[in-house]
Design a protein around this nucleic acid. Structure first.
Length: 882
RNA sequence: GGGGCUAUAGCUCAGUUGGUUAGAGUGCUUGCUUGACAUGCAAGAGGUCACUGGUUCGAGCCCAGUUAGCCCCACCA
């Protein structure tokens, strides 16, 4: 054990800044973040959800990282081989959009640069923000193994992507085909179904007449998108719709285009909606696309990728779609084919990146066949191989997976993994390969060109748990750490990411990617709104760290919220966290200030009541913390440590220890010092995963063994001793002290004025209490203590309280306010009466007596006895005062 | 149209297998230059645990329904 006293006792306020920087650097240089620490032990691995290199980290990342770092530090302290793998995501569409924005400010478009130069700019962007993100993670205190850091677009991850693509391709699980996809005309790319956000939009339903070809009148269709009618290839009604029973099979003339199209019957139609007749535009509506496949209808694309009408739109060609809509409705009015317009609110798909309305288009794209993959993904969660915490997210996941459709993975972007497929210009052959083939295997031509599209960014993040560990190479890292232990992320990306990782892991590795998924909520602003750029209500974690310290931020983020629930970010809460850390700091200052003469083993220990009490409480608190950590109840764990530290250690034990420290003999002083060190050291260990910086700073200054608190043992309570009887007695003494303080406060006894206290109880109990007489004198401001056996005559003019068989009198001649004391007593008596009423009801209930466990009944009886005695005792005193 | 979450002190929230006199932080009241800390100490006020039923000896907690708010999914044009 060494003891170096460095703490500046003048610093009554803890200043986190320099201390946090100092320790992060120290830990990193000492190699404590390495996955080689505890190398021979059971591995514990977390792969960090890679933040996007689009920008800096927000409060959600701070929460995510705080949780992961807590888990990692905790397991490391338990002796596990803890490995937290950091990394970042290239975030295809998002980053490309940012780079394009930056170019636009220079008056340039990506086409001005060309693919290669554009990618250079994108890499510059990546380097810039990567450095920033790294800085932020270090400021948070993240103990990740930086030497193993990865990026989704690095060489290894790129190889993994190609390998996995081929794996699925060979099984026919990746295919190319012309299907209806979601097109964002702003981003100029497809997006997958989950990247489409549906918002309700107030719009109109136009009722339009399509004349029958045989001249027998017209059918009225209702549409929200008149401009698409130029691409109609049928009108559909429901089989059972009597209104149209004799019309099915006829043809109608599509107005404006003068095209003859059939009237068909399809169960998709809702007879209740509109007129029951729906126009079918297979090229611009997913449902119509399905109808067309069932009825073998042609596809006519009338809206192009630029959002303008195509040449197939006849005279409307080249026009913006919305302008076309307006003019087309006008034309229908002129033609006498407009029946009317009604208001309608309906869901419209928008791009999740830019908010542009999504245009469904038919286009040749690459898809992943999801059904067979999803089945395995569902089974793994259903049979418990992968466990969701909290468990309610299991249902969310399964129901989504059960309804999954094929995943469009090709993107018309430049920033990302190029699709590993080449086309032969000579024979049209499609060649999927890991590396660029020299010649066409079919015709030997060397006129090969690679597919120009890149893959959906989530295609590569889906491989993250194994691509980062070195796959497809058979690395030791992969052997040691796959499957990973737990994945920590927000519920908002369960579908985007968690589901994809499960599916990909099972498909490629034949093994789940992780055992557990720990889901947290999102951080909202003080009013409960989502933090967003557009609202400008985001709170920068860095600002908070600079103002309050990373420890405060971490503590605040994981307390006061239960797992999986959202949290409001309120400044008062981070202030409260800061105050707690300051409290810990000051309790440590107090301890250190009293250790100048401390020498381990100098004397024998003589544990007092207070010592035995705090050690017992420490054992309980430690056990509580340890159990809650195991259950992922981090907030509860933190709260237990907080309560113990502040309420029991600081408010009581430190006060109880002062007398021995200031006036005790060397042995007494030594014992108090030893217990202070022991309890404080234990507190620091319990809190270290949560608030690593301040705990390390203090620990290093206390007598300690080992190089760093990071590598110290995390206590679980089993190593601590307990003294239940002494602890119980101290609890009684505390109650007596509180009662006496209450009386003093109510009677407004000036602080400096000491008063006598008379205690009346059974002799055996009195003897016990007398053992804590010093505590009473000190903390209840007692001048003289008098112990009288039960039945003795109490002092005449006194205030009284009654606590667990002990009558407490404060003779306050001159100070006592009879009226106040009467009121106080009456209030106490009322409480007793209410409790007794409740207890009596229970105890006279025969079924309660018959069915409740004996223990519960005994407890209630004991309470009844106590309250009866208390009531009697107080009533007697009340009478005396009258 | 499905599914989920939330409703507990003025405010923000805990309350983990049903048994505590229902808790914390913050705010409020009162008193404190207490030899670690005013980012603090002590004492206090403040709750029909949304509502209605049910299960149970016993419900803030379990079940059903109602109301209010939030979120996710979804192809009614």
């Amino acid at each position: 054990m060494e003891h170096k006293k460095q703490l500046n006792v003048l610093d009554t306020v803890y200043l986190p800044g320099p201390i946090e920087q100092k320790w992060y650097k120290h830990w990193q240089e000492a190699g404590y973040f390495s996955s080689d620490i505890n190398k021979e032990s059971e591995p514990f691995c977390i792969v960090m959800p890679p933040p996007n290199v689009t920008g800096q980290l927000h409060m959600g990342h701070a929460l995510d990282c705080a949780i992961q770092d807590i888990l990692i530090r905790w397991r490391r302290m338990q002796g596990r081989r803890a490995f937290w793998l950091p990394g970042t995501d290239h975030a295809g569409i998002a980053t490309q959009a940012k780079v394009e924005e930056a170019l636009a400010e220079e008056g340039l478009s990506k086409y001005d640069l060309g693919r290669e130069l554009f990618l250079e700019r994108a890499w510059e962007w990546k380097h810039h923000y990567h450095a920033r993100i790294t800085k932020q993670l270090t400021m948070m205190g993240c103990s990740c193994d930086w030497e193993k850091e990865r990026f989704t677009l690095d060489e290894g991850c790129s190889e993994a992507v190609r390998e996995f693509f081929l794996h699925l391709y060979k099984q026919g699980l990746i295919y190319r085909g012309s299907y209806i996809i979601n097109w964002c005309s702003h981003c100029q790319t497809t997006i997958s179904d989950i990247e489409v956000e549906h918002h309700n939009v107030a719009s109109y339903l136009w009722h339009l007449r399509y004349p029958y070809a045989d001249g027998s009148g017209y059918v009225v269709v209702a549409t929200t998108r008149p401009e698409t009618l130029l691409g109609d290839t049928a009108v559909a009604v429901h089989h059972e719709d009597k209104r149209y029973a004799d019309k099915v099979g006829k043809t109608v003339i599509l107005p404006v285009m003068e095209r003859e199209i059939p009237l068909i019957a399809d169960s998709y139609c809702d007879m209740e909606f509109g007129t029951g007749a729906v126009k079918v535009t297979p090229a611009h509506d997913p449902n119509d696309f399905e109808i067309a496949r069932r009825h073998d209808l042609p596809l006519i694309s009338v809206i192009g990728k630029d959002g303008k009408m195509t040449e197939k739109a006849g005279k409307y060609a080249g026009m913006e779609a919305l302008e076309c809509r307006r003019l087309l409705v006008e034309e229908f009015k002129h033609l006498g084919l407009w029946e009317g317009t009604t208001e309608l609110e309906h869901a419209v798909g928008h791009c999740y990146r830019c908010g542009t309305v999504i245009e469904p288009l038919v286009s040749p794209q690459w898809f992943v066949k999801m059904k067979p993959l999803a089945e395995r993904g569902i089974a793994a969660v259903e049979d418990g191989a992968i466990r969701f915490v909290p468990s309610r997210f299991k249902r969310t996941y399964i129901s989504w997976m059960g309804n999954i459709r094929d995943w469009c993975i090709s993107r018309q972007l430049w920033w990302g993994h190029r699709i590993p497929v080449w086309y032969c210009a000579a024979c049209g052959q499609e060649i999927a390969a890991k590396e660029a083939p020299a010649t066409c295997p079919k015709c030997n031509s060397n006129a090969l060109t690679q597919d120009t599209d890149v893959l959906d960014t989530w295609f590569s993040s889906g491989l993250w748990p194994f691509s980062t560990l070195g796959w497809p190479k058979e690395t030791q890292l992969l052997k040691d750490f796959y499957p990973t232990s737990v994945l920590v992320t927000g519920y908002d990306i369960i579908f985007f990411w968690v589901a994809r990782m499960i599916v990909s892991g099972l498909a490629q590795m034949d093994m789940k990617p992780f055992h557990e998924v720990f889901i947290h909520g999102i951080i909202r602003d003080g009013e409960g709104r989502k933090m967003s750029k557009s609202l400008g209500n985001g709170i920068d974690p860095i600002e908070m760290i600079e103002q309050y310290g990373a420890d405060s931020l971490r503590f605040m983020l994981i307390t006061g919220v239960s797992p999986g629930n959202d949290m409001r970010f309120q400044t008062e809460r981070i202030e409260a966290a800061r105050n707690f850390i300051n409290k810990l700091w000051n309790a440590s200052r107090f301890t250190l200030m009293n250790l100048e003469d401390y020498k381990q083993g100098a004397y024998e220990l003589h544990l007092t009541l207070a010592d035995k009490w705090i050690l017992t409480r420490l054992k309980i608190a430690t056990t509580t913390v340890a159990l809650n950590m195991e259950k992922y109840e981090l907030g509860e764990a933190a709260r237990a440590a907080y309560d113990f530290t502040w309420d029991e250690f600081c408010d009581w034990y430190v006060e109880l220890a002062k007398q021995r420290l200031y006036q005790g003999n060397p042995e007494e002083r030594y014992t108090a010092q030893t217990v202070l060190i022991k309890v404080l050291t234990n507190i620091l260990a319990l809190l270290h995963p949560i608030i690593p910086f301040v705990t390390e700073e203090i620990w290093q200054q206390l007598p300690h063994e080992g190089a760093s608190l990071m590598l110290a043992r995390f206590p679980d309570g089993s190593e601590l001793e307990k003294y239940p009887q002494e602890a119980q007695l101290v609890e009684l003494l505390m109650d007596i002290i509180r009662a006496a303080r209450n009386i003093r406060a109510e009677m407004k006894v000036p602080l400096g004025k000491k008063a006598n206290i008379v205690l009346i109880a059974e002799p055996a109990l009195l003897t016990d209490i007398a053992g804590g007489a010093d505590y009473l004198r000190q903390l209840a401001q007692a001048l003289e203590l008098q112990f009288l056996p039960s039945g003795s005559t109490p002092p005449a003019l006194a205030a009284k309280a009654h606590v667990r068989g002990v009558e407490i009198y404060l003779p306050l001649a001159g100070l006592i306010d009879i009226e106040k004391e009467t009121a106080r007593l009456k209030k106490e008596i009322t409480t007793c009466k209410n409790e007794l009423k409740r207890l009596l009801g229970k105890l006279t209930n025969t079924s309660f007596i018959a069915k409740a466990p004996l223990q519960v009944i005994e407890k209630e009886r004991a309470k009844q006895g106590e309250f009866e005695e208390k009531k009697r005792s107080l009533e007697k005193h009340l009478e005396m005062l009258q």
